[in-house]
Simulated assay, not measured.
Amino acid sequence: MTDETLLIDLHSHTTASDGQLTPSELVARALEKGVQMLAITDHDTLAGLDEAHQFNNAQPQPLRLINGTEISTRWNNFDIHIVALNIERSNIVLNEFLCQQRRLREARAMEIGLRLEKAGIAGAYEGAKALADGAALSRGHYARWLADNGYAVNAAAVFKKYLARGKTGYVPNNWSDMASAIEIIHQANGIAVLAHPSGYKLSAKWLKRLVREFKEAGGDAIEVVLGQQTVDDRNNLIALSKLNQLFASLGSDFHFPSGWIELGKNMFQPQGVDWVWQMEKWTETP
């Protein structure tokens, strides 16, 4: 069986960051859904990978489990995420970098809590921290807590009302720049993928600029097939990948079971696309 016939999902999250399934539960669900190649890409951490590999290796028919992480970076004051695939988990440089990322993430989370408290929303930091349960604290945890406590109808509405740029709980990012993150990924023998490019709500002009500068910074690939997108969006991202000579990737960005985002769902592989797993340097590490 060739990679082109596999059901592949190269972007997912567990309770090691802001997902709601443990690493074992995520792998089990992927197997249930027929996913044959899965990347776990928790935000700025590798913490879930050991458990995921142990569980996967104990299965009668394990899937191909790809080591990954999703790194938050800064580009023109936007939060831009880079998925790192096939990284060496033990790489010292990468692990030190991710530790620093988590320190920055915690500092930002504390400031979000302070701003929400000043706006009359007490206990948000402590509530989000409890939901994180030791994982790297993210805006996603704040969104869940605020939704659970009636401040908006759901997490997406929380972002629009409280956490988006210009809103009460918005705190400018303090991440590394794209080029530095890409260099770290390469030092860990990984592949740098621009995550969910159409999710940043950029104009066509700015999106083209982002993809071009990502390539100029050393980026390897771009996600062109997402869990939810229009055919026009997919075709536009494929065109941008070809224009900038970037390989293509795909991923659901799964966080929890729902009716609209699911592991392996809508993971089409259009013909005539150079996929990231076809790269010469694609080497799956245990």
Rank of each mutant, 00 (worst) to 15 (best):
M1T: 13
M1H: 10
E4Q: 11
I8C: 04
I8H: 03
H11E: 13
S12K: 01
T15F: 00
T15Q: 08
T15C: 09
A16F: 04
A16V: 06
S17F: 00
D18M: 02
D18Y: 05
Q20K: 12
T22D: 09
E25C: 02
L26P: 04
L26A: 06
G34Y: 00
G34M: 05
V35W: 07
Q36V: 01
M37T: 06
L38W: 03
L49S: 01
E51Q: 12
A52V: 04
F55R: 00
N56A: 03
N56F: 00
R64N: 08
L65E: 00
I66C: 00
I66S: 01
T69G: 02
I71W: 01
T73R: 07
W75Q: 09
D79M: 01
I87C: 01
E88D: 14
N91H: 10
I92F: 11
I92T: 13
E96T: 11
L98R: 05
R103S: 13
L104S: 05
R105W: 09
E106T: 11
A107N: 10
A107K: 13
I112Y: 02
G113Q: 05
L116H: 04
E117K: 15
E117G: 11
G123L: 07
A124Q: 03
Y125F: 15
G127N: 07
A128E: 08
A128V: 11
A130H: 12
D133E: 10
G134R: 04
A135K: 00
L137W: 07
R139T: 06
R139G: 10
H141A: 02
N149T: 12
G150P: 07
Y151E: 08
A155P: 00
V158W: 06
K161E: 15
L163Q: 00
R165Q: 12
G169K: 03
P172M: 12
P172E: 11
N173Q: 13
W175D: 15
W175G: 02
S176C: 15
A179H: 12
I184M: 06
I184P: 01
I191G: 03
V193P: 05
A195H: 04
H196E: 03
S198K: 13
S198A: 15
G199Q: 09
G199E: 10
A204Q: 15
K205Q: 15
W206G: 04
L207A: 06
V211G: 03
R212C: 14
E213A: 01
E216H: 09
A217W: 00
G219V: 08
I222C: 08
E223R: 00
V224L: 07
L226Y: 11
G227T: 09
Q229W: 02
T230V: 11
T230G: 15
R234V: 10
S241G: 10
Q245I: 09
F254Y: 14
I261S: 07
E262K: 09
L263E: 01
F268W: 14
Q269S: 05
V273F: 11
V273Y: 10
V273P: 00
D274T: 10
W275K: 10
W277R: 08
Q278I: 11
M279E: 11
E280M: 11
E280D: 15
T283M: 12
T283L: 13
E284P: 07
